[in-house]
């Protein structure tokens, strides 16, 4: 198992390295990255000075090595717009995004997993069809549209919930539902397939033959085995939730890194945008790695091999 995990860690390191390289070249797609960092209306002289100060006049390979060295030391650079270290700008916003992602995950898991189990157990019934409709709706709903509709209904018309900003738990409800809907659909689909796969196994038939009710068989035997693929989805969905926050945070004026990304683009603060992309990708890679490790620990076929 250790060899298996070490292999995954190695892959994750290579992938991280690849992401850093890809972002480095993306930032240079427009030709001169200096132009992304200066305020509009800067003179050619000012741009030339800045280009030299930031080292963008050096050969590309030198810039690349310097970029990697800086990031490996955990230094995300200094924002030229806010004149602050990018890490501290990011750090002040991350807790809000984590709060939102956690809220959305509660919505997604809390509805998605029970819905998926119900769809598998009552296969072919009215229950499955109505839950399938819910899943399709969640999957097809644009987050900004459901967000605005909820603001209209619960914020403006009924006045039950705050329409934007951060004001305790009530302000977290609508953004969490808007962001969690898509993940809810993924959890429901994955859970349904995993439970159906397990229900067709012989051990379930054996358990039923011993007189166990379907509910008891699911609770005692199926749930454990079906949990394995669902854990993998959870890891992927956390990355998706962080990325989806870009739109939802803009709709609800939620001060997390998603809103920060859009504000930073408007303010031409590209080091901040770059840092957010790197941060979210890194979380995504780590989550995937964790899922693989958990998978290896839970699944005896991998745990006991070698």
């Amino acid at each position: 198992m250790l060899r298996h995990i070490a292999g995954r860690v190695g892959q994750a390191v290579v992938t991280t390295f690849g992401v850093l390289t890809l972002v480095f070249f993306l930032m240079r797609l427009s030709g001169d990255p200096t132009l992304l960092l200066v305020p509009q209306g800067a003179s050619a002289h000012q741009i030339a000075i800045l280009r030299h100060q930031l080292g963008f006049d050096r050969p590309l390979i030198v810039q690349y090595v310097a970029y990697l060295r800086q990031l490996l030391q955990g230094n995300l650079g200094t924002s030229l717009v806010q004149r602050m270290p990018v890490a501290s700008i990011l750090g002040s916003r991350i807790p809000y995004t984590i709060e939102l992602a956690a809220g959305s995950l509660v919505v997604a898991v809390g509805i998605g997993i029970p819905a998926g189990v119900a769809m598998a157990v009552w296969r072919g019934s009215l229950v499955e069809r109505s839950l399938a409709a819910l899943v399709f709706a969640g999957q097809s709903m644009p987050t900004f549209w459901s967000g605005i509709l909820m603001i209209l209904l619960f914020g403006v018309v009924l006045g039950w919930l705050p329409t934007s900003g951060v004001a305790g738990l009530p302000s977290l409800i609508m953004p969490s539902i808007a962001l969690g809907a898509l993940s809810m659909a993924s959890f429901a689909r994955m859970t349904r397939i995993a439970v159906l796969d397990e229900l067709s196994r012989d051990y379930v038939a054996a358990a039923r033959a011993r007189g166990l009710s379907l509910g008891a068989a699911v609770a005692r035997h199926v749930a454990r085995n079906a949990a394995i693929p669902v854990v993998t989805v959870a890891a992927l969905e956390i990355g998706n939730l962080l990325a989806g926050a870009v739109i939802v945070e803009t709709v609800f004026a939620w001060p997390g890194i998603g809103q920060l990304a859009i504000q930073a683009i408007a303010a031409r603060d590209f080091l901040v945008v770059q840092a957010i992309v790197l941060f979210v990708s890194f979380v995504f890679i780590v989550m995937n790695l964790l899922a693989d490790v958990v998978y290896a620990v839970i699944d005896p076929r991998i745990r006991l091999s070698s």
Partner: peptide
């Protein structure tokens, strides 16, 4: 591993 919407943004 770069979430698509962020890569696009």
């Amino acid at each position: 591993s770069i979430p698509a919407i962020l890569l696009a943004v």
